[in-house]
Protein backbone atom coordinates (compact mmCIF):
# COMPACT_ATOMS: atom_id res chain seq x y z
CA UNK A 1 0.00 0.00 0.00
CA UNK A 2 2.72 2.45 1.02
CA UNK A 3 4.72 1.24 -1.90
CA UNK A 4 1.81 1.98 -4.19
CA UNK A 5 1.38 5.53 -2.87
CA UNK A 6 5.11 6.13 -3.04
CA UNK A 7 5.19 5.00 -6.65
CA UNK A 8 2.33 7.30 -7.52
CA UNK A 9 3.95 10.26 -5.79
CA UNK A 10 7.23 9.69 -7.54
CA UNK A 11 5.46 9.25 -10.86
CA UNK A 12 3.97 12.75 -10.75
CA UNK A 13 7.33 14.46 -10.27
CA UNK A 14 8.43 14.21 -13.91
CA UNK A 15 4.92 15.15 -15.02
CA UNK A 16 4.97 18.34 -12.97
CA UNK A 17 8.52 19.02 -14.10
CA UNK A 18 7.45 18.92 -17.76
CA UNK A 19 4.54 21.23 -16.97
CA UNK A 20 6.85 23.65 -15.16
CA UNK A 21 9.36 23.64 -18.00
CA UNK A 22 6.61 24.29 -20.52
CA UNK A 23 5.17 27.14 -18.49
CA UNK A 24 8.62 28.62 -18.03
CA UNK A 25 9.44 28.36 -21.71
CA UNK A 26 6.15 30.00 -22.71
CA UNK A 27 7.46 33.46 -22.04
CA UNK A 28 10.83 32.71 -23.66
CA UNK A 29 9.13 31.46 -26.82
CA UNK A 30 7.15 34.64 -27.18
CA UNK A 31 8.69 36.87 -29.78
CA UNK A 32 10.31 39.92 -28.23
CA UNK A 33 12.07 40.79 -25.01
CA UNK A 34 10.47 38.83 -22.15
CA UNK A 35 10.86 41.75 -19.77
CA UNK A 36 9.08 44.06 -22.17
CA UNK A 37 6.35 41.48 -22.71
CA UNK A 38 5.77 41.21 -18.97
CA UNK A 39 5.83 44.91 -18.38
CA UNK A 40 3.15 45.52 -20.97
CA UNK A 41 2.70 48.28 -23.52
CA UNK A 42 2.90 51.32 -21.28
CA UNK A 43 6.02 50.39 -19.33
CA UNK A 44 8.95 52.70 -18.79
CA UNK A 45 12.44 51.52 -19.56
CA UNK A 46 13.23 51.60 -15.83
CA UNK A 47 10.45 49.14 -15.12
CA UNK A 48 11.69 46.85 -17.86
CA UNK A 49 15.23 47.00 -16.51
CA UNK A 50 13.92 46.21 -13.05
CA UNK A 51 12.07 43.11 -14.30
CA UNK A 52 15.07 42.05 -16.33
CA UNK A 53 17.13 42.22 -13.19
CA UNK A 54 14.62 40.34 -11.00
CA UNK A 55 14.19 37.46 -13.40
CA UNK A 56 17.88 37.27 -14.12
CA UNK A 57 17.24 37.62 -17.82
CA UNK A 58 20.89 38.39 -18.48
CA UNK A 59 21.88 35.09 -16.92
CA UNK A 60 21.96 31.77 -18.82
CA UNK A 61 18.59 30.13 -19.35
CA UNK A 62 18.97 27.45 -16.65
CA UNK A 63 19.77 30.12 -14.08
CA UNK A 64 16.63 31.92 -15.19
CA UNK A 65 14.71 28.68 -14.70
CA UNK A 66 16.22 28.17 -11.26
CA UNK A 67 15.25 31.69 -10.23
CA UNK A 68 11.76 31.26 -11.59
CA UNK A 69 11.08 27.84 -10.08
CA UNK A 70 12.55 29.01 -6.78
CA UNK A 71 10.08 31.89 -6.75
CA UNK A 72 7.18 29.64 -7.69
CA UNK A 73 7.97 27.14 -4.97
CA UNK A 74 7.95 30.00 -2.46
CA UNK A 75 4.54 31.10 -3.67
CA UNK A 76 5.92 34.10 -5.48
CA UNK A 77 4.30 34.06 -8.89
CA UNK A 78 5.33 37.52 -9.92
CA UNK A 79 3.36 40.63 -10.52
CA UNK A 80 0.62 41.39 -12.96
CA UNK A 81 1.35 44.75 -14.52
CA UNK A 82 -2.01 44.83 -16.19
CA UNK A 83 -4.02 44.28 -13.01
CA UNK A 84 -1.48 46.13 -10.84
CA UNK A 85 -1.40 43.38 -8.24
CA UNK A 86 0.68 40.38 -7.38
CA UNK A 87 -0.52 37.33 -9.23
CA UNK A 88 -1.03 35.48 -5.95
CA UNK A 89 -3.47 38.15 -4.77
CA UNK A 90 -5.24 38.16 -8.06
CA UNK A 91 -5.75 34.43 -8.00
CA UNK A 92 -6.88 34.39 -4.39
CA UNK A 93 -9.61 36.87 -5.35
CA UNK A 94 -10.76 34.80 -8.28
CA UNK A 95 -10.69 31.31 -6.82
CA UNK A 96 -14.08 31.20 -5.16
CA UNK A 97 -16.43 31.32 -8.17
CA UNK A 98 -14.42 28.69 -10.04
CA UNK A 99 -14.25 26.38 -7.08
CA UNK A 100 -17.96 26.79 -6.41
CA UNK A 101 -18.78 26.13 -10.04
CA UNK A 102 -16.57 23.06 -10.20
CA UNK A 103 -17.94 21.54 -7.02
CA UNK A 104 -21.60 22.18 -7.90
CA UNK A 105 -21.04 20.72 -11.36
CA UNK A 106 -19.18 17.69 -10.12
CA UNK A 107 -21.78 16.87 -7.48
CA UNK A 108 -24.67 17.34 -9.84
CA UNK A 109 -23.11 15.58 -12.80
CA UNK A 110 -21.89 12.54 -10.91
CA UNK A 111 -25.12 12.07 -9.02
CA UNK A 112 -27.06 12.14 -12.27
CA UNK A 113 -24.75 10.34 -14.64
CA UNK A 114 -23.74 7.29 -12.61
CA UNK A 115 -27.30 6.11 -11.94
CA UNK A 116 -28.43 6.65 -15.51
CA UNK A 117 -25.31 4.93 -16.81
CA UNK A 118 -25.93 1.90 -14.60
CA UNK A 119 -29.56 1.75 -15.57
CA UNK A 120 -28.71 2.05 -19.25
CA UNK A 121 -26.26 -0.83 -18.97
CA UNK A 122 -28.75 -2.92 -17.07
CA UNK A 123 -31.39 -2.36 -19.73
CA UNK A 124 -29.01 -2.59 -22.63
CA UNK A 125 -30.81 -2.05 -25.91
CA UNK A 126 -33.93 -0.61 -24.31
CA UNK A 127 -35.49 2.74 -25.19
CA UNK A 128 -33.97 4.21 -22.04
CA UNK A 129 -30.53 2.96 -23.03
CA UNK A 130 -30.86 4.43 -26.49
CA UNK A 131 -32.04 7.71 -25.03
CA UNK A 132 -29.06 7.89 -22.70
CA UNK A 133 -26.65 7.10 -25.50
CA UNK A 134 -28.35 9.61 -27.76
CA UNK A 135 -28.21 12.28 -25.10
CA UNK A 136 -24.58 11.47 -24.53
CA UNK A 137 -23.61 12.02 -28.17
CA UNK A 138 -25.61 15.22 -28.17
CA UNK A 139 -23.93 16.35 -24.96
CA UNK A 140 -20.52 15.87 -26.53
CA UNK A 141 -21.55 17.78 -29.62
CA UNK A 142 -23.29 20.93 -28.47
CA UNK A 143 -20.73 23.46 -27.26
CA UNK A 144 -21.03 24.72 -23.71
CA UNK A 145 -21.61 28.34 -24.67
CA UNK A 146 -24.51 27.42 -26.93
CA UNK A 147 -26.09 25.43 -24.12
CA UNK A 148 -25.41 28.29 -21.73
CA UNK A 149 -27.11 30.84 -23.93
CA UNK A 150 -30.04 28.53 -24.57
CA UNK A 151 -30.52 28.08 -20.84
CA UNK A 152 -30.22 31.82 -20.25
CA UNK A 153 -32.74 32.50 -22.98
CA UNK A 154 -35.29 30.04 -21.65
CA UNK A 155 -34.91 30.28 -17.87
CA UNK A 156 -33.65 33.81 -17.36
CA UNK A 157 -35.07 35.84 -20.23
CA UNK A 158 -38.28 34.10 -21.25
CA UNK A 159 -39.33 32.60 -17.92
CA UNK A 160 -37.47 34.99 -15.65
CA UNK A 161 -36.90 32.36 -12.98
CA UNK A 162 -33.20 32.91 -12.55
CA UNK A 163 -30.77 35.79 -12.95
CA UNK A 164 -29.09 36.10 -16.34
CA UNK A 165 -25.51 36.62 -15.28
CA UNK A 166 -23.29 37.65 -12.42
CA UNK A 167 -21.99 36.27 -9.19
CA UNK A 168 -22.70 36.81 -5.50
CA UNK A 169 -20.14 35.58 -3.03
CA UNK A 170 -21.24 32.67 -0.93
CA UNK A 171 -20.55 34.59 2.29
CA UNK A 172 -22.62 37.59 1.18
CA UNK A 173 -25.91 35.95 0.39
CA UNK A 174 -26.14 32.20 0.14
CA UNK A 175 -29.51 32.13 -1.60
CA UNK A 176 -28.45 34.58 -4.28
CA UNK A 177 -25.22 32.68 -4.65
CA UNK A 178 -27.14 29.47 -5.23
CA UNK A 179 -29.51 31.13 -7.72
CA UNK A 180 -26.57 32.26 -9.77
CA UNK A 181 -24.89 28.87 -9.66
CA UNK A 182 -27.80 26.90 -11.12
CA UNK A 183 -27.48 27.77 -14.79
CA UNK A 184 -23.66 27.75 -14.99
CA UNK A 185 -23.47 24.37 -13.24
CA UNK A 186 -26.18 22.98 -15.46
CA UNK A 187 -24.35 24.22 -18.53
CA UNK A 188 -21.06 22.77 -17.48
CA UNK A 189 -22.69 19.52 -16.39
CA UNK A 190 -24.03 18.60 -19.80
CA UNK A 191 -20.73 17.54 -21.29
CA UNK A 192 -19.64 15.94 -18.07
CA UNK A 193 -22.83 13.94 -17.72
CA UNK A 194 -22.49 12.82 -21.32
CA UNK A 195 -18.99 11.56 -20.61
CA UNK A 196 -19.58 9.87 -17.25
CA UNK A 197 -22.88 8.23 -18.12
CA UNK A 198 -21.32 6.76 -21.20
CA UNK A 199 -18.30 5.39 -19.42
CA UNK A 200 -20.44 4.10 -16.56
CA UNK A 201 -22.61 2.23 -18.99
CA UNK A 202 -19.63 0.79 -20.80
CA UNK A 203 -17.83 -0.25 -17.62
CA UNK A 204 -20.89 -1.87 -16.11
CA UNK A 205 -21.59 -3.69 -19.38
CA UNK A 206 -18.06 -4.99 -19.44
CA UNK A 207 -18.25 -6.14 -15.83
CA UNK A 208 -21.60 -7.83 -16.50
CA UNK A 209 -19.75 -10.06 -18.95
CA UNK A 210 -17.31 -11.24 -16.32
CA UNK A 211 -17.29 -14.78 -15.04
CA UNK A 212 -17.92 -13.75 -11.45
CA UNK A 213 -21.21 -12.15 -12.45
CA UNK A 214 -22.23 -15.52 -13.82
CA UNK A 215 -21.14 -17.04 -10.50
CA UNK A 216 -23.24 -14.51 -8.63
CA UNK A 217 -26.25 -15.43 -10.76
CA UNK A 218 -25.56 -19.12 -10.18
CA UNK A 219 -25.76 -18.40 -6.46
CA UNK A 220 -29.37 -17.39 -6.88
CA UNK A 221 -28.86 -13.69 -6.20
CA UNK A 222 -31.43 -11.29 -7.53
CA UNK A 223 -30.56 -9.08 -10.47
CA UNK A 224 -30.55 -6.01 -8.26
CA UNK A 225 -28.02 -7.50 -5.87
CA UNK A 226 -25.86 -8.72 -8.72
CA UNK A 227 -25.89 -5.26 -10.22
CA UNK A 228 -25.34 -3.19 -7.09
CA UNK A 229 -23.09 -5.44 -5.04
CA UNK A 230 -21.03 -7.17 -7.70
CA UNK A 231 -21.11 -5.14 -10.88
CA UNK A 232 -20.99 -1.54 -9.71
CA UNK A 233 -18.12 -1.92 -7.31
CA UNK A 234 -16.02 -3.62 -9.91
CA UNK A 235 -16.89 -0.94 -12.43
CA UNK A 236 -15.90 1.80 -10.00
CA UNK A 237 -12.25 2.03 -10.99
CA UNK A 238 -12.75 2.89 -14.67
CA UNK A 239 -15.57 5.27 -13.76
CA UNK A 240 -13.39 7.07 -11.24
CA UNK A 241 -10.56 7.23 -13.74
CA UNK A 242 -12.74 8.97 -16.25
CA UNK A 243 -14.11 11.36 -13.64
CA UNK A 244 -10.51 12.26 -12.92
CA UNK A 245 -9.66 12.76 -16.56
CA UNK A 246 -12.91 14.66 -16.96
CA UNK A 247 -11.59 17.30 -14.58
CA UNK A 248 -9.66 18.60 -17.58
CA UNK A 249 -12.90 19.05 -19.46
CA UNK A 250 -14.36 20.70 -16.40
CA UNK A 251 -11.50 23.20 -16.23
CA UNK A 252 -11.70 23.92 -19.94
CA UNK A 253 -15.46 24.25 -19.69
CA UNK A 254 -15.13 26.62 -16.75
CA UNK A 255 -13.21 29.07 -18.90
CA UNK A 256 -16.06 29.23 -21.39
CA UNK A 257 -18.90 29.02 -18.87
CA UNK A 258 -17.53 31.79 -16.68
CA UNK A 259 -17.34 34.00 -19.73
CA UNK A 260 -20.94 33.26 -20.70
CA UNK A 261 -22.31 33.88 -17.21
CA UNK A 262 -19.98 36.66 -16.23
CA UNK A 263 -18.53 34.84 -13.25
CA UNK A 264 -15.38 36.56 -11.99
CA UNK A 265 -13.43 33.31 -11.64
CA UNK A 266 -10.09 31.96 -12.75
CA UNK A 267 -11.41 30.98 -16.17
CA UNK A 268 -12.51 34.49 -16.88
CA UNK A 269 -9.19 35.70 -15.51
CA UNK A 270 -7.36 33.45 -17.97
CA UNK A 271 -9.19 34.98 -20.91
CA UNK A 272 -8.66 38.51 -19.65
CA UNK A 273 -4.99 37.79 -19.13
CA UNK A 274 -4.58 36.42 -22.65
CA UNK A 275 -6.43 39.37 -24.15
CA UNK A 276 -4.17 41.78 -22.28
CA UNK A 277 -1.09 39.60 -22.79
CA UNK A 278 -0.49 39.48 -19.05
CA UNK A 279 2.02 36.63 -19.04
CA UNK A 280 2.73 36.21 -15.33
CA UNK A 281 -0.97 35.60 -14.81
CA UNK A 282 -1.36 33.23 -17.75
CA UNK A 283 1.63 31.22 -16.59
CA UNK A 284 0.40 30.97 -13.04
CA UNK A 285 -3.12 30.01 -13.97
CA UNK A 286 -1.91 27.23 -16.24
CA UNK A 287 0.50 25.99 -13.63
CA UNK A 288 -2.18 26.08 -10.98
CA UNK A 289 -4.82 24.28 -13.01
CA UNK A 290 -2.33 21.62 -14.07
CA UNK A 291 -1.18 20.99 -10.53
CA UNK A 292 -4.78 20.73 -9.36
CA UNK A 293 -5.56 18.35 -12.19
CA UNK A 294 -2.54 16.16 -11.47
CA UNK A 295 -3.19 16.11 -7.72
CA UNK A 296 -6.85 15.20 -8.14
CA UNK A 297 -5.87 12.35 -10.39
CA UNK A 298 -3.26 11.27 -7.90
CA UNK A 299 -5.91 11.17 -5.18
CA UNK A 300 -8.20 9.19 -7.44
CA UNK A 301 -5.41 6.73 -8.15
CA UNK A 302 -4.86 6.25 -4.47
CA UNK A 303 -8.59 5.87 -3.88
CA UNK A 304 -8.59 2.82 -6.17
CA UNK A 305 -7.21 0.88 -3.25
CA UNK A 306 -10.56 1.36 -1.52
CA UNK A 307 -12.36 -0.33 -4.37
CA UNK A 308 -9.93 -2.93 -5.53
CA UNK A 309 -7.91 -4.93 -3.04
CA UNK A 310 -5.63 -6.21 -5.78
CA UNK A 311 -4.05 -2.78 -6.19
CA UNK A 312 -2.75 -2.69 -2.64
CA UNK A 313 -0.05 -5.19 -3.31
Amino acid sequence: MLDFIARRLIAIIPVLAVVAIFVFLMLRLTPGDPAAVIAGDNATSDQIADIRNKLGLDEPIWTQFAIWIGNVLQGNFGESFFFKKTVAELIAQRVEPTLALAICTLLFAVSVSVPIGVLAAYRQGSVFDRAVMGFSVLGFSVPGFVIGYCLIYVFAIELGWLPVQGYVRIGVNFWQFLERMVLPSLTLSVGFIALISRITRASVLEVLNEDYIRTARAKGLSNRVVLMRHALRNAAVPILTVIGLGIAILIGGAVVTESVFGLPGLGRLTVEAVLSRDFPTIQTVILLFSVVYVVINLLIDISYTLFDPRIRY
Binding site: L16, V18, M26
Partner: peptide, 22 residues
Amino acid sequence: MRIMDGLMAIPGILLAIALVSI
Protein backbone atom coordinates in the same frame (compact mmCIF):
# COMPACT_ATOMS: atom_id res chain seq x y z
CA MET B 1 6.17 9.27 -22.48
CA ARG B 2 7.31 11.63 -19.70
CA ILE B 3 6.90 14.58 -22.07
CA MET B 4 3.53 13.29 -23.26
CA ASP B 5 2.33 12.77 -19.68
CA GLY B 6 3.43 16.31 -18.88
CA LEU B 7 1.56 17.75 -21.87
CA MET B 8 -1.50 15.75 -20.94
CA ALA B 9 -1.39 17.16 -17.44
CA ILE B 10 -2.26 20.58 -18.84
CA PRO B 11 -6.00 20.63 -19.55
CA GLY B 12 -6.35 20.69 -23.35
CA ILE B 13 -8.11 23.96 -23.87
CA LEU B 14 -5.76 25.75 -21.45
CA LEU B 15 -2.77 24.45 -23.35
CA ALA B 16 -4.34 25.72 -26.55
CA ILE B 17 -5.01 29.10 -24.93
CA ALA B 18 -1.41 29.26 -23.74
CA LEU B 19 -0.09 28.51 -27.21
CA VAL B 20 -2.42 31.02 -28.84
CA SER B 21 -1.19 33.63 -26.41
CA ILE B 22 2.39 32.96 -27.43
